[in-house]
Amino acid sequence: MGRVARRAAISILLVGLAACGPVQAGGVPDPGEIASRRIRAVATIGQIADVVRNVAGDRVDLVGLMGPGIDPHLYRASEGDVVSLAEADIVFYNGLHLEAKMADVFEKMGGSVTTVAVTDDIDRDELLNPPEFDGAYDPHVWFDVAKWMTVTEVIRDSLVTIDPEHAELYESNAHDYLAKLEDLHRYVAEQAQRVPEEQAVLITAHDAFNYFGQAYDFEVRGLQGISTATETGTADLSGLADFIVEREIPAIFVETSVPERFIEALREAVASRGSQVSIGGSLFSDAMGDAGTPEGTYIGMVRHNIDTIVAGLTASRESES
């Protein structure tokens, strides 16, 4: 069954399900009505869910579709998801084709449920437009904390729009959270400075960290393309291995939402060239950590990443000799 056929089948199925069954269509919620109860909100990736939670606090009943370790490029909506989406007052998603296999769902929902692509307010000029991804933008914007601050504002504004009665609450929460993000942004930049320039190269399984690189001055290379749905070729792997050896890069990084074997293969390739590269650690790329842990929050995740990256790229120099 081809991808087209599959998407068509799911679309038909979803339209069918959305059209029938005991589902309350969201529609544009009545502000008076909504003020008296909690907002039913759905967020796709954890990074968005975390912001919503911080801005809306107790005012929201939040369903996060993609949990820790889930790959959003490949995620297919289940029937349960469709029900949640249809019943929601507001749906927050990343947009920019991150949730590639849910594009049809959002299109269908657009009419009856309020959907918000949280990246909409980011200036298109500031977005990266990689050559292989003709016409489309790199969606992994959350790694530039400054851009995620814009996202926070979008979320705040959307909540205010549908629930104006509690506008003060949202604005106050958002204000606090934005301050935290400001600190985080500064922290990351500082830490990034600790890595000497020649070693400031981040190599991971897929091209998720371009915004990180752009914001904090790292060169970034991924094995797979922007989306994990693509398949690598041997040239890509070899090329990357050559690059690692040439630039004497001390560490490469595994991602929690991508199979380890790719990085293993890369390491073997480097080893065969007589060089050595260590696995610097595991980074959160498309998904965050387990709920209840610090890495289960956006701020915690970003901190974990920068700490791991810096540790890997600086410490390894010593362990090599």
Binding site: G67, P68, G69, I70, D71, L74, T228, E231, T232, G233, T234, D236, L237, T256, S257, V258, P259, E260, R261, F262, E264, A265, A287, D290
Partner: peptide, 18 residues
């Protein structure tokens, strides 16, 4: 959570380069 790590989807289309 570990589903993506296991690369189950990869079995559909292969991962020869790895």
């Amino acid at each position: 959570p570990d589903a993506s790590q296991a690369g189950l989807d990869k079995f559909l289309f292969g991962q020869a380069a790895a």
